[in-house]
Computed example of a mutant assay.
Amino acid sequence: MSVTVIADIVGSRSLPDRASAQQTLDAIIAEVDEFGPGAIQRLTPTVGDEQQGIYETVEMALSAILLLRLALPADVQCRFGLGIGEIRSVPAAGGSIPDGPAWWAARRAIDEARALQQRAVPAARTRVVADSDESSSVQDAVKLANAYALVRDQLIDGMSARARRLTYGRCRGRTQRELAASENITQSAVSQTLSHSGAAALVATFVELSGEWK
Rank of each mutant, 00 (worst) to 15 (best):
I87F: 00
R107F: 08
L15M: 14
R13S: 13
Q77A: 08
R152S: 12
A30P: 04
A124W: 02
R88C: 15
D157S: 15
R13G: 12
D33C: 11
P122W: 05
A21L: 03
I97N: 01
S195I: 02
A102Y: 04
G85I: 10
V121N: 06
L150Q: 14
M159R: 12
Q192Y: 10
I97Q: 12
A181T: 14
R177D: 05
V76G: 06
A189I: 06
Q139P: 08
A161Q: 14
M1W: 13
A123D: 10
R119N: 13
Q41E: 11
D8P: 11
R114P: 02
I28M: 07
S2M: 14
R162Q: 09
R165Q: 04
V58Y: 00
M60I: 08
S135E: 01
A64W: 09
G83E: 09
M159Y: 07
L15W: 01
A204K: 12
Y148S: 07
R79V: 09
A161E: 14
A105W: 03
Q118S: 08
S182T: 12
N184M: 13
V32H: 00
V203P: 06
D75C: 00
R13C: 07
V10K: 08
S182A: 15
I40H: 03
A64F: 08
A147N: 03
A7W: 09
V5L: 05
R172F: 03
G211Q: 14
L194Y: 04
A124D: 03
A141G: 10
E183I: 10
R174Y: 13
R13L: 15
S20G: 12
L144K: 00
A21R: 04
F35P: 12
P16H: 13
A30Y: 04
V32S: 01
G100V: 06
I87E: 04
V47D: 03
F206E: 11
L82D: 00
V128K: 03
Q41Y: 09
T186P: 02
A147L: 11
V32N: 01
P122K: 04
N184Q: 15
Q22E: 08
G38D: 03
A199N: 02
I29P: 06
V90P: 00
A71V: 00
L15V: 08
R69Q: 15
S195V: 05
E208S: 11
I9W: 01
E31W: 10
I54G: 01
R79A: 05
I9Y: 00
T24R: 13
S135R: 01
N146C: 01
V47L: 10
P101Q: 05
T175H: 02
G85E: 03
I185G: 00
T205H: 04
R42Q: 12
A180R: 13
D33I: 13
P98D: 07
K143G: 01
A163C: 15
I87T: 05
P73S: 03
D111S: 15
T44G: 10
Q139S: 10
A71S: 07
E208W: 09
V203N: 07
D75Y: 00
W213T: 01
H196D: 14
I29N: 12
A163Y: 12
A92C: 09
E134H: 05
D153A: 13
G85Q: 04
D75A: 05
N184F: 14
R88N: 14
S188T: 15
E134D: 04
